[in-house]
């Protein structure tokens, strides 16, 4: 490539980056502005970053919902992986009639629109007295991410050479031991990737949390959405909350970018 062509490409890349990051940055800047600066026209471009009142106000009233989000997300990730890993291992190593059908069925449940499950789940948890509890959200989020976790975990259990599994069996390991002491350690980095994906999916979820929580178990996205009402929008709270809310996905994206394509395509596209 010629030098001038390369410079042109860099300029174009800078422009693309600006388009995809500027809106996020603009919201981040708003979090450090007082109310009048948030609404100022012409805009205040660079705020005073030592102004943290928005964060203080936000967290003093809503820290318990942030905590809810953390507990629900971590809990859902743990439950999801506890079900997904054995299932994926079984589906890879256990040959039986209808195995492909079962795997396809599992994948197809990932495509189900949450709205189709919302009312029935609402009724079940209502009957069980579990509406507006953290437990119900953990159960639902773990379940909704289960197909994804199983399907992608299958692809890395498949990468473990068959000979290793065979050898462990011949050494006298039970299937449970083979799974725990041989397969899991070998798939360590893959498990880390999948868990992080599940974590982010659960962290970002809004629709089901709107249905299943009302006061006690509200998650942070529900709280954020409540800052925008028909009559008034609390931008100072929204901007501060947005920073906190998008921090985990941003860190995740920067750390895991090699796995994002394969993760989001359920392992169909490798890079």
């Amino acid at each position: 490539m010629t030098k001038s062509n390369n410079r042109l490409a860099v300029i174009a890349a800078l422009f693309i980056t600006l388009i995809f990051t500027a809106p996020i940055i603009w919201m981040v800047l708003a979090a450090f502005k007082n109310i009048s600066d948030i609404y100022a026209i012409p805009p205040v471009w660079i705020p005073d970053f030592s102004y943290l009142d928005n964060f203080v106000l936000l967290l003093s009233e809503n820290w318990q919902y942030l905590l809810n989000s953390v507990i629900v997300t971590l809990g859902a990730t743990a439950v999801c992986m506890a079900f997904a890993l054995p299932a994926a291992f079984g589906l890879v190593n256990y040959r039986f009639k209808g195995r492909n059908f079962l795997a396809d069925w599992i994948l197809s449940t990932r495509m189900m629109p949450p709205i189709a499950a919302a009312v029935p789940l609402f009724m079940v948890f209502n009957t069980a007295g579990m509406l507006d509890t953290i437990g119900s959200l953990i159960i639902v989020y773990a379940g909704f991410n289960l197909p994804f976790a199983i399907w992608v975990s299958m692809s890395f259990f498949r990468n473990i050479p068959k000979e290793i599994i065979e050898a462990a069996r011949i050494e006298g390991c039970t299937w449970g031991q083979t799974f725990r002491t041989v397969a899991l350690p070998l798939a360590k980095s893959g498990i880390a990737t999948v868990s992080t994906f599940v974590f982010i999916f659960a962290w970002n979820e809004l629709l089901l949390a709107l249905f299943l929580t009302s006061r006690e178990a509200k998650t942070f996205p529900v709280v954020i959405s409540s800052f925008s009402t028909v009559t008034k929008t609390y931008w100072e709270l929204i901007s501060a909350a947005t920073i906190i809310q998008i921090l985990p996905p941003i860190i995740f994206t920067l750390l895991m970018q090699k796995h994002i394509v394969s993760g989001l395509t359920m392992g169909a596209v490798k890079n």
Binding site: A13, L14, I16, T17, F20, T21, I24, M27, I200, W203, N204, L206, P221, I224, S225, T242, Q245, I246, P249, I250, F252, T253, L254, Q257, I260, L264
Partner: peptide, 15 residues
């Protein structure tokens, strides 16, 4: 620049 450009897709949709 590519790493920065891909930030939007994982961000919480309501945000």
């Amino acid at each position: 620049l590519r790493s920065m450009s891909i930030l939007p897709m994982m961000i919480t949709p309501i945000c």
